[in-house]
Amino acid sequence: MNQEFETQLQVVQRALGEVVMPALGAAEKHVVEQLHLSIAALAFMQQRLPHARRYYRGTTLSYLAMADAIIQLLKDCQEADSGKLGALVIQGRALLESPTGDIIDYRHFTEELRVVIAGLAASAQGSPQETALDSLIIDHSGPILLQERVWCAPLGFELRPQDLPQADWLR
């Protein structure tokens, strides 16, 4: 059989686009629209599947860099507790070094890291370090979100996709 997911997705797209779509003819508009969107979702997966592991690993790396910077910022603030973040960073480094680390591991870890970072931002309200912490998170989030946009660019929402930075996962 064709073992490649890409081929599997390619044949389904051709069937839907070249056989099913023309047969719909005078079907209701929302039916045709849903078929178009289904094909678009398959095309997105076909484009992104080969790069998924590097993409999610890159996101993990970026949030670990943010976490490192936060720990550095908070180390002189007695009232700020970054202990949980420190433990997560150690866990994250181990995950990146593990040869068995997979997409789902990177995704779950990054999600947990983001919850802890958001919690620190919320609990810093009114504290002396709040402004610096918020600025740091906002600054570090910029390049991360740009890469998320690059990842989603095939969906067609970008006004000028050519202005986006190069994909980190292709470097």
């Binding site: 849903q34 289904s38 979702a41 989030s141 910029g142 979100l145 969906l155 929402f157 970008e158």
Partner: peptide, 25 residues
């Protein structure tokens, strides 16, 4: 009734969040 459409537009979320971050800054 439009899960595929909502799933599709949710892909615009990072564009919106990135724009929020830049504007807020």
């Amino acid at each position: 009734h439009q899960d595929v459409l909502l799933n599709h537009v949710s892909g615009m979320g990072y564009l919106a969040l990135s724009e929020l971050r830049d504007y807020f800054r």
